[in-house]
């Protein structure tokens, strides 16, 4: 299995972080960065990373199933994650989630037919004081109103980069 030179370089860096006989430590970081490039954790990827980390595909499969960010099926180009945990719930996380469902026509962990968006109701993402919060891929958005959500999703659908969307600012940078 081949990866982009950038990802290969990253893998090399990951593997160098841990003692030589502890390559398995690099497994989870490798999985999550590989997922970003490959789209999901495929069987082929499992085989490949098992080989590179000195584990068995069974061991990798066990790991993949444990972590909620690792997906066996590709999510959308924009994976919209809305927190409805307690702090967000108290400040409208529920309404935001419902709006996202309505807006995209998707439910929990569903992917749009064209692969553009996917939706996930997620657990606390560490933005409790700036609730309700959401993430699109790895970008954080704080204090999002249902109206802002519409604007954000429309802008992304229209091909705008997150940085270019003035109305709803991503805060993580």
């Amino acid at each position: 299995m081949t990866f982009s030179p950038a990802l290969e370089a990253r893998f090399e860096k990951f593997l160098a972080k841990y003692p030589a006989d502890r390559k398995r430590s690099a497994l989870i970081p490798m999985l999550i960065y590989a997922q970003d490039e490959v789209g999901s954790i495929t069987d082929e990827l499992i085989q490949e990373l098992a080989r590179r980390t000195g584990t068995t595909p069974m061991q990798v499969t066990e790991v993949v199933g444990f972590y909620s960010m690792l997906q066996r099926k590709p999510m959308g180009k924009y994976h919209v994650q809305i927190c409805t945990n307690i702090s967000c719930l108290l400040r409208g996380g529920d309404e935001l989630w419902e709006q996202a469902c309505k807006k995209t026509g998707l439910g929990h962990k569903q992917v749009a037919a064209d692969g553009s968006f996917s939706l996930e109701e997620v657990e606390c993402m560490g933005a409790c004081s700036w609730a309700p919060a959401m993430q699109v891929n790895y970008d954080f958005y704080h204090g999002v109103t249902p109206k802002q959500l519409d604007v954000l999703l429309d802008s992304l659908a229209a091909g705008k980069k997150p940085e270019e969307i003035a109305e709803v600012k991503k805060v993580s940078c």
Partner: peptide
Amino acid sequence: DESEPGTCKDR
């Protein structure tokens, strides 16, 4: 691995 609901300080 900050993830206790209600907590956003380590970030």
